[in-house]
């Protein structure tokens, strides 16, 4: 498998707060890397101790195994006053990094995988929403996404329809914007940063920028860990493990338009590490 265009993209490789002097070995696109403190500053090296470019943003250490074709994507909300920035930590999953992102873009599974939290039967309908590729930034965007959420917040009695927007800003990174229960009119930001270790193994680093002054930091971390680990057992049981880009291999419906756009965008950009191009 050639790493192709994905070699020149940015990837998360750890929490800034978690980097140590002695360092940690990891993988990126199948190649060994090392993350360590060099004179107090996080540094990353590839094979043969080759230094890799480093960015420190959104609580994480970012690197690029090739030559970055553009700067690390911007999440402007990260700098907004009043938001709490939450480092959720790592969760390793035996799945394609692209499958992990695709699942993050999906809402129709909420009633079955996140039962009574993000969705519940019989409120399973996915209404029409808008999806497109924003050519100026070359990102996939889904807007006007709505879904019935049985318990939107600790204070919320009964369910409400929650609004979502989704954004794919790098082949293995996505940001979702969600109605903020304590700050109606504002959007909470929940990001999924995926480190592709190999084509079928990834470290997932969720991160959030929330308007919530009440919940403890630990509560916020645990909520996101709960949600992601509920997804993990699904992600580890999809066949084939690689994300099929061949349209005949899996059957999308109108609810899957974000995933359809994501797959097309991956194909168009040659982002195929973790993908299956032709049915096996």
């Amino acid at each position: 498998m050639s790493v192709g265009a994905m070699k020149d993209q940015w990837y998360p490789v750890g929490l800034i707060s978690g980097v140590t002097e002695e360092g940690r070995d990891s993988l990126l696109l199948g190649e060994p890397i090392r993350i360590f403190l060099d004179g107090g500053t996080p540094a990353v090296t590839g094979e043969g101790e080759r230094p890799l470019p480093v960015e420190l943003r959104y609580g994480h250490v970012w690197t690029c195994p090739g030559t970055p074709t553009r700067p690390l994507f911007d999440i402007p909300e990260a700098d907004q006053l009043g938001r709490r920035l939450v480092d959720v930590g790592v969760c390793r999953v035996r799945c394609s990094p692209l499958r992990a992102v695709e699942n993050f873009l999906d809402i129709a599974h909420f009633p079955f995988v996140h039962t009574d939290i993000l969705g519940s039967e019989p409120h399973t309908e996915v209404t029409r929403y808008e999806v497109g590729i924003r050519e100026d930034v070359d990102e996939v965007w889904a807007t006007k996404v709505q879904f019935f959420q049985p318990q939107a917040a600790k204070s919320a009695e009964g369910g409400i329809t929650t609004d979502y927007m989704y954004r794919v800003c790098a082949p293995t990174c996505s940001v979702l914007y969600k109605t903020s229960p304590p700050m109606p009119g504002e959007w909470d930001v929940i990001a999924l940063f995926v480190q592709p270790l190999t084509e079928t193994l990834c470290d997932v680093w969720p991160w959030m920028a929330l308007y919530d002054d009440d919940a403890s930091m630990t509560d916020l971390i645990h909520f996101q860990q709960l949600i992601f680990v509920q997804d993990r057992s699904v992600l580890e049981n999809q066949l084939p493990a690689l994300l099929p880009l061949d349209p005949g291999m899996e059957i999308p419906t109108r609810a899957d338009l974000t995933s359809v756009a994501y797959r097309r965008w991956l194909k168009r950009n040659g982002f195929t590490y973790g993908a299956q191009l032709v049915a096996a």
Binding site: H123, E125, T161, D163
Partner: peptide
């Protein structure tokens, strides 16, 4: 599907 329009909230505080 039950009718959930009653419980629909717009982003109105």
């Amino acid at each position: 599907m039950p009718d959930i329009r009653q419980t629909r909230t717009t982003r109105d505080p």
